[in-house]
């Protein structure tokens, strides 16, 4: 007898899961997706959305799902029922190429600025704005790299404002040489 395949009994150790959802770019589609998550008690960690083709007929929504809040099969199954959802790619964290963007405004006295600039350069971030007592930097990279950078900034410079975009992802290519 085959094993049950439902998520109600399987517990995956991975708690975050990335769904790359291609949707028709129609009015209200984001509300449909977000509303579905809330009414079915599925938790979202982050959500990023942008047009997916030049004609803006489709958008791609990258959703990082809390796979503990509901079995992934249920999330995918319910999402698929939305008429405007065209395709769902479930990217396990091993198959996903993930990137995210961060902006941070750091309030720093003039005399301590050099130290901050060094750390910024080390992390591969760059300065995008500057004033007498603050600088704004940006970093794009893997969520892990952003986490490390965010921790460094937040610890060293409590006077800061950090904004992240939430991640976007695409599947890795076969035999991908990328290591990130």
């Amino acid at each position: 007898m085959p094993e049950p395949f439902s998520g109600t009994t399987t517990h995956s150790p991975i708690t975050h899961h990335i769904l790359s959802v291609l949707v028709e770019n129609k009015a209200g589609v984001l509300a449909r997706v977000a509303g579905l998550f809330s009414r079915r008690s599925f938790n979202i960690f982050s959500l990023a959305v942008a047009p997916a083709d030049a004609h803006e007929r489709f958008s791609r929504i990258t959703i990082v799902v809390d796979a503990e809040s509901a079995p992934l099969e249920q999330v995918v199954g319910q999402l698929n029922k939305l008429i405007n959802v065209v395709e769902i790619r479930d990217l396990g964290s091993n198959e996903a190429l993930e990137r995210e963007l961060l902006l941070a405004t750091v309030h720093v006295p003039h005399q301590e600025r050099d130290h901050l600039l060094e750390s910024v350069a080390d992390a591969g971030a760059s300065v995008v704005d500057i004033s007498d007592d603050a600088i704004t930097v940006t970093l794009s990279g893997t969520p892990t790299a952003l986490n490390a950078f965010e921790a460094m900034v937040a610890q060293g410079y409590p006077q800061c404002e950090i904004q992240r975009t939430g991640r976007v992802a695409l599947p890795r290519l076969n035999n991908s040489a990328t290591t990130a």
């Binding site: 085959p2 049950p4 395949f5 439902s6 249920q74 199954g77």
Partner: peptide, 22 residues
Amino acid sequence: AAIVHVDIDPAEIGKVRAANIG
């Protein structure tokens, strides 16, 4: 009971009770 679950809605299969065959 083992479960065979036939449904036109894929999201119903395994929603409440795991199915051996959906």
